[in-house]
């Protein structure tokens, strides 16, 4: 997974309730605005985060979101990491395919979030947890 020690951490939030999801996406919107991203990109990244956090909340009961700014491939980017210590995803390819759902959603979650950002990375281990990192150029 892409990583860099020179990224500046802008904020983080623990997710324990549905209200935390609302607060986390407002936090993301705040930093996207602060980084002077356009209104459409602000909306894309906030919506992507909302999809990811809902997955995390439904399947893992919660987790953590961290927001960074920094360079990825020598381009300025907003970087967001969502991680949980839930059941993990057995078949990543299946979970990433359009329309796939394990019953709690309609299958827009992961593939939908991926379409809204510039880069999407996912790591998952059964019974350990899942980490998703999304990157949006500024």
């Amino acid at each position: 997974m892409t990583s860099d020690k020179n990224w500046e951490e802008l904020g983080r939030k623990n997710l324990e309730s549905e209200n935390d999801i609302v607060m986390a996406r407002q936090l993301v919107r705040h930093y996207a605005k602060q980084l002077r991203m356009g209104i459409v990109d602000q909306t894309r990244v906030t919506t992507a985060v909302s999809e990811l956090l809902r997955n995390m909340y439904n399947y893992a009961g919660g987790g953590e979101i961290k927001i960074f700014s920094g360079l990825v491939d020598e381009k300025d980017a907003l970087i967001i990491t969502c991680s949980d210590s839930g059941p993990g995803i057995e078949d990543l390819e299946l979970a990433m395919s359009d329309g796939y759902t394990s019953g709690m959603g309609m299958g827009y979650g992961l593939p939908g979030a991926k379409r809204l950002v510039d880069r999407f990375e996912i790591q998952s281990k059964v019974n350990v947890g899942t980490t998703v990192r999304i990157i949006k150029w500024r």
Partner: peptide, 14 residues
């Protein structure tokens, strides 16, 4: 509906 919301909804696939 705000234009940015409409764009995002369609890109999301909804």
């Amino acid at each position: 509906m705000q234009p940015a919301v409409a764009i995002t909804l369609v890109e999301l696939g909804l």
